[in-house]
Amino acid sequence: MRSTTSHAAGSGAARFRQFLRNYGWAYAFIAVPVLLFLVFTLYPVGWAFVISFQKYGILKSTWVGFDNYTYMFKDDVFWKSMRNTVIFTIGTVPVNILISFGLAFLIFQLKQRAQTFFKAVLYLPTVASGVTLSIVWIAIFDPTPSGMLNRLLIQLGLDPVIWLGQKSTALFSLMLMSWLGSHGSGIILYLAAMGGIPKSLYEAADIDHASGWKKFSRITWPLLKPTTLYLLVTGVITSFQVFISVYLMTQGGPDFATTTIAYLIYQTAFNFNQFGLASAQAFVLAAVIVIVSVLQFKFFSTDIEY
């Protein structure tokens, strides 16, 4: 019996050594990022989930059950910020995708050197920090008649607008900033995807005397769907988390017109020191993003093959 056991143990050790020889390096390389993920992402997220059920104190926290969630769902400001976030997302993501696609489509018709030039030029804003861009936009949206955008309006015979200072235009101004902002990544992705479409498909369409629109609607657009879906999902996630422009340009005002959920989380945590409530808000935001992403995959990826 003993010999059988020791034999089994010996063969087990041998199998482990064999496993290490075959896969050890792979696991070693994976171990570092996995550990970093566990320590710097999973652990804080898990801890934040616990805090969402607490009245957080630095030295002592108190368990409050679902109180933070109950308070949040009864809070007008939370619903206003959720509404603003949804409006911002609906108003920016599809428009940004269309702009990126349109620009990429135009650039794709150009010669290689011109393509490279436009790719570089249009990617530059992506490299610039959001803070810098916001400062430039503050000057553009200067509410006085000497403001850049207002000067343009006056030249056109229109009245100056208090862009960021009135409820009717504040959120629109942030959306305008997004539309005219960074499309670099989207353009690069679309150009790469356009370059990957086999030319033979267009040649076949030419033989069939297909019109430009037919080629676009039957070849180009369907084959770009995976890229569009990727941009849609990442765009929605990013816009649900919009923060920098709100923080720097409007601080959620006027009268909560631009308070987004990410800004509300920041304000709850760092202005009011209610970390429990802020964690609850963050988890609801995460849940909304997951649900929206799943729905997007469910409805938009039905005819996509990877």
């Binding site: 208090i162 200072g165 009135q166 409820k167 959620g252 005002g253 006027p254 009268d255």
Partner: peptide, 9 residues
């Protein structure tokens, strides 16, 4: 803060 902004506008 939002109230006074509303008054200003």
């Amino acid at each position: 803060k939002p109230g006074v902004q509303a008054l200003f506008t």
